[in-house]
Design a protein around this nucleic acid. Structure first.
Lengths: 227, 227
DNA sequence: ACAAAAGTGTTTTGAGTACACCCATGA
DNA sequence: TCATGGGTGTACTCAAAACACTTTTGT
């Protein structure tokens, strides 16, 4: 008779000011009490996997994600928990700046956003999971328009540019990036908005979800590369 | 107390003569007795997931794969089996022509290679799993050199070309493909071999695994695209 | 000699890159 | 007016695409 438990864990990223953040919670019970870990928990018998992730995220962090996809299933740590073997189906989630802010308020609780550059040592094999999530995000951003889920629905070109700079960890020409991403025909120019600071006021843009879906039907492949 | 069982299933592809084949087995017991399904089964308590796949493949089909990677975890069919909920971690496997032949001999048993073009209706949600596997294979072949695992270690350029034609379902210029793949610097020209049929005898080539790993370290990205 | 398949060469196009330059605001 | 960042234009490079052509075998 098989004795394996099934859990879900979420690698949720947020973005702000050229920095990528990871959502963590502080363990309250169990052998890892006091350690930081990823949000997650056991799946209920009558619950879909993705539902379980969304539920745990709400319960533990009060965060709602903009984007969610299955990442990988980790199940090779045979003796992680003395009470029995656990395999965990992990998900990659993205929140926009709203989600990021809300959480900052509940900061005093047991959930916190960590800069990806200064991650603490997480419990279980969660650092490994984060690595997988980061890798997925960083590679996927090249050939799927998921970066937009980390921004406000309406954004400045410089923000999109900064996001890509942060995620790809590459430096590229501002002007060429602009042209490259505009040529895809997926951004709507919303005209000039109030100036955010110094210099000439900038236009804001919007990702045209609908247009993307249309193009996708025709076999279009989103792609943005850097030298 | 959670009551979920964990299984693995394998989507194993082979290739021959411009055709892609899928490995299936005929169910001997249970409610789906007599139906074709993917090789797989329950994971043992002290067994890694990938080990379970390899074990099941050997037990059920006597096939050894050349390549194996985790595909996706299906767990949303809450009432698939009356005896309880099962989530299944699926794997994508590739065999070279050797593996394909061996199996053809055991044909009379309960394992069989089906042309992907003429797949039967599989039990459970296995057709959905195959779709996922096909999609993964077809997209991954563009940016990772996994196609070679479907060929003999030594191959004619025309074979490689046919493989890419089959997988991408696109027609492209023979000569441009040749140049494109040679320019990557990952193939060793082994010189002229015996002529396989009509026409001028062809050179054989070998994928230089070692060279690929070296380049990968330097941040090289394998990529082969078609218009 | 001819068909068939392998291998090489050439032209054209267009995206990627690296720049210089102009524009509109705040101070 | 000057500094600052936003937006536009242009020359160069090089891979991708579309071709014609030559080479080497079997029949």
């Amino acid at each position: 008779m098989q004795n394996i438990k099934v859990a879900v864990d979420a690698v949720v990223f947020g973005y702000k000011d050229e920095q990528l953040f990871l959502l963590c919670i502080k363990q309250k019970f169990g052998p890892l009490k006091g350690h930081w870990v990823l949000p997650g928990g056991l799946v209920k018998d009558k619950e879909r996997l993705q539902e379980a992730v969304i539920r745990e995220l709400l319960e533990e962090t009060n965060v709602e994600v903009e984007y969610l996809e299955q990442l990988y299933t980790f199940g090779d740590t045979l003796d992680r928990d003395p009470r029995g073997r656990v395999i965990t189906v992990t998900y990659l989630g993205l929140v926009n700046p709203e989600g990021l802010k809300i959480k900052a308020a509940t900061d005093a609780m047991d959930a916190k956003w960590f800069s990806v550059e200064k991650l603490p040592s997480l419990g279980f094999d969660h650092n490994e999971i984060v690595a997988k999530g980061l890798e997925r995000l960083r590679s996927k951003v090249h050939y799927e328009p998921i970066g937009f889920d980390l921004l406000n629905p309406i954004f400045y070109m410089a923000e999109l540019e900064g996001l890509y700079r942060t995620l790809t960890r590459r430096d590229f020409d501002r002007r060429n990036f602009r042209r490259k991403i505009l040529r895809l025909g997926l951004l709507e120019d919303l005209g000039i908005f109030s100036s955010p600071g110094k210099g000439r006021p900038a236009n804001k843009y919007r990702f045209i979800e609908q247009r993307f879906k249309e193009l996708q039907e025709e076999g279009f492949q989103f792609e943005i590369k850097f030298s």
